[in-house]
Each structure stands twice: as C-alpha cells, then as structure tokens.
Simulated scan of single mutants.
Amino acid sequence: MTDCALTIGCFQYDTTRALFDGSVRLEGADVTMATAATLPELFERLIRASEFDIAELGLTFYLRLLETGLPYVALPIFPNRVFRHSCVFVNVHCGITDPTHLSGRVIGEFGIYGQDSGVWAKGILSDEYGFRPERNRWVIGGLESPAPPFDFVPHPRPAELEWSAASEGASLNAMLDAGEIDALFSANVPQCVLDGSPNVARLFPDFEPLERDYYRRTAIFPIMHTIVVRKDLLQARPRLAQDVYRAFTQAKERAAEHYRRGRRLYQVQTMVPWMNALIDRDIDQLGADWWPYGIAANHAALDTYLRYHFEQGLSSRRWKVDDVFAPELLNS
C-alpha cells in the first residue's frame, strides 16, 4: 500500500524530537512535521484552517470546541505537562503572601480565561486552599506584548465572573510589574521575573517541595495538551489511532532512555549542574516511566482536569474521560 501523506503539527519537545528528525516514523505514512513559534499560533492554525491532519492542542481548547463541533478527536498522548504551583505570580506590594490573600484581587491571564495552566492552578488552589475564581476580577491580554483575547476559540465562563480585556497598549507582564494587576496566572515565566524585578515574586517561592508533596498525595502530574487526529482519517484508516499512539510513544521513550542512560555519566551531555541528582529524584518518586501516555496511567489527572473545567464554568457538562478520547485507545 502506498504511504499516505500526513502533516503533524506540534511543538519540538524532547518527547517529539525523534518524529522531527525522522528516527521514529509513523507506519504507513509519509509525514511532514510542522511547528510554530508559539503554541497559540499552532492551535490557531489548526482551529481556523484545519491545517494539520494530526496536531497538538491544549485540553481546554479541545473541550470548548468539542461542545460546538470539531472535526478532530483526541488521543491519550500528552506532550506538555507541568506542575502548576509555580505558575502564580504576585506583585509584592499588594500584600499577597499566601493563597488566602488572593480573594477579591485583580488577576491577569494570558489570551483566554481558563488557559490549561490556569485551569490547573485555579483547581488546585480551590481544592487545597479554598480559592474561588469568581470572587476576583480577571484581566485577559497578551503576556509580553499587548494583544486582545484569542478570537479563534469560544470563551465560556460563569455568568457572575467579572472580567475585561487588558487596556490597549498594555501587557500583563508590565501591568504586574507596575501593580496594575495584583497577580498573574501564567504558563510562561513573565519577563519581569526573569529580569529580577523586585516588584514581582511567585506566590509559592519554594514551589518544588509543594509540587512533589502534591504528587505524593494525589499521584497527579498535571496535563496541559493532547494530540488530536482528523475524524475522517480515523474512519478511513482503522489502525491510524494505534499507529499514531505507537509513534508518539516511541519518540517519548527515545527521550526518556536518553536521560536514563545519562545517569551512568552524570548527565554530562547537558550543561545543567546536578541534573543527575534531579533525574534520580524524579525516577525515585515518579518511576522509570515518569511521563506516561495512555488512559490508565493518567485517568486520575484527566478526570480531575475535567472536574475543574466544569467547576470553573468552562464546560456545560461534566465530561467523563471516556467521552473525550478516541474509543480505539480507551484501554491504553
């Protein structure tokens, strides 16, 4: 059978590098790999123009479009996942020194109310500290450069939620540094923090012990993005879902094995001091497959995210895990 031509759009992570360099191939397909400068650009190209046959997509973008109609279905492949206690930043002059001080504040969020990182941060703060997002005023805009809220995806939110777009010409980074917003929920570290601004700090400065304790108690490693495939392709090629899953898993395993082998040489292939100790700690706590794909290993994380999405008014229904992923891989 002649290989079919497919385009895969995703970010270049270590977990996808083997797909980009061709050392892992998708069986029965002639694949063109594509990426973008930013993840929102990648999502927009998928949503506006169905530019890719297979692509990375943020979970909240997928769930919003699942309700309105989307010609793609998700596979349990998760190329982007990050613990999120570290993603809440505060202006130090606003008197916010613990999570209880967030109530009634003005909080910024990049591009959309309910970014994947924000869904997790709000949900964890709600579960652990009683945070209620609807008690705050939210400002949506560009992180480093002025930008309006995303216009390529629906914006569901609770009716009582108070929000506004950032002022024209204002970025969330500059607003946080100036104290024009009290806090920022951000998937990226804002430039003012990287520049060492004395005006801004993390809500949880020593976040790693908190995130490790969170994992120890919940076994949840927060998931941001999934991989989606065109529905018509899955219908035309019954084995495609399994083949895509296998290829992404093989690519991820190439990366994991690189780090596992590197333990013998103290990870000298990197320039990060004590990387070997970090890898050892991660394997000790998270196991040899610390970045699992599939439903079984991620069911708790996925179900928690779906609960948060509903509780935060971003879904009209409480989705179940089996509702949102390709049936062919529900037993993965």
Results as ranks from 00 to 15, higher is better:
residue 218 T to G: 08
residue 235 Q to R: 14
residue 203 L to T: 08
residue 229 V to D: 02
residue 217 R to S: 09
residue 253 E to H: 13
residue 226 T to L: 07
residue 253 E to M: 14
residue 193 V to K: 02
residue 213 D to H: 00
residue 213 D to F: 00
residue 222 P to L: 08
residue 221 F to G: 00
residue 232 D to L: 09
residue 200 V to Y: 05
residue 242 Q to K: 12
residue 228 V to F: 11
residue 255 A to C: 15
residue 197 S to H: 07
residue 221 F to R: 00
residue 199 N to P: 00
residue 194 L to H: 11
residue 208 E to R: 08
residue 229 V to Y: 07
residue 242 Q to W: 05
residue 236 A to G: 05
residue 224 M to T: 04
residue 233 L to M: 14
residue 253 E to D: 14
residue 254 R to Q: 15
residue 203 L to H: 05
residue 192 C to S: 13
residue 210 L to G: 01
residue 203 L to C: 09
residue 225 H to V: 03
residue 201 A to T: 10
residue 212 R to T: 04
residue 233 L to A: 04
residue 238 P to H: 10
residue 251 A to I: 09
residue 244 V to S: 07
residue 242 Q to V: 07
residue 246 R to Y: 03
residue 255 A to E: 11
residue 204 F to C: 07
residue 197 S to K: 06
residue 251 A to T: 09
residue 248 F to V: 06
residue 201 A to G: 09
residue 235 Q to H: 13
residue 192 C to T: 15
residue 195 D to Q: 15
residue 246 R to E: 15
residue 222 P to S: 06
residue 197 S to P: 05
residue 254 R to F: 04
residue 250 Q to V: 01
residue 238 P to F: 10
residue 207 F to Q: 01
residue 198 P to G: 04
residue 252 K to L: 11
residue 205 P to D: 09
residue 210 L to C: 04
residue 232 D to V: 10
residue 226 T to Y: 01
residue 248 F to T: 06
residue 223 I to A: 05
residue 199 N to K: 12
residue 256 A to T: 08
residue 241 A to K: 13
residue 197 S to Y: 10
residue 192 C to V: 14
residue 234 L to E: 07
residue 241 A to C: 10
residue 237 R to N: 12
residue 231 K to E: 15
residue 208 E to L: 11
residue 250 Q to G: 02
residue 220 I to C: 02
residue 202 R to C: 06
residue 257 E to V: 14
residue 247 A to G: 09
residue 233 L to W: 14
residue 202 R to A: 12
residue 254 R to T: 13
residue 221 F to P: 00
residue 210 L to M: 11
residue 215 Y to S: 01
residue 232 D to E: 15
residue 205 P to E: 14
residue 225 H to M: 04
residue 255 A to Q: 09
residue 233 L to T: 06
residue 244 V to W: 02
residue 245 Y to C: 03
residue 240 L to V: 11
residue 195 D to G: 08
residue 256 A to C: 06
residue 237 R to F: 14
residue 222 P to M: 06
residue 208 E to T: 04
residue 199 N to W: 04
residue 231 K to S: 11
residue 229 V to M: 07
residue 235 Q to C: 03
residue 223 I to G: 03
residue 211 E to T: 01
residue 209 P to F: 01
residue 196 G to H: 09
residue 227 I to C: 08
residue 254 R to V: 14
residue 256 A to F: 03
residue 232 D to T: 13
residue 245 Y to N: 04
residue 219 A to F: 05
residue 251 A to K: 06
residue 212 R to F: 10
residue 217 R to C: 01
residue 226 T to N: 07
residue 217 R to W: 00
residue 196 G to K: 11
residue 237 R to S: 10
residue 224 M to V: 01
residue 248 F to D: 03
residue 252 K to A: 12
residue 205 P to Y: 07
residue 257 E to I: 10
residue 204 F to S: 03
residue 192 C to N: 11
residue 245 Y to W: 13
residue 221 F to H: 06
residue 205 P to F: 06
residue 196 G to Y: 12
residue 212 R to H: 07
residue 248 F to P: 03
residue 224 M to F: 13
residue 236 A to F: 07
residue 233 L to P: 02
residue 208 E to C: 00
residue 228 V to L: 06
residue 192 C to I: 10
residue 211 E to N: 01
residue 255 A to Y: 13
residue 200 V to A: 09
residue 192 C to G: 07
residue 237 R to Y: 15
residue 220 I to A: 01
residue 213 D to G: 00
residue 257 E to A: 14
residue 225 H to A: 05
residue 258 H to V: 02
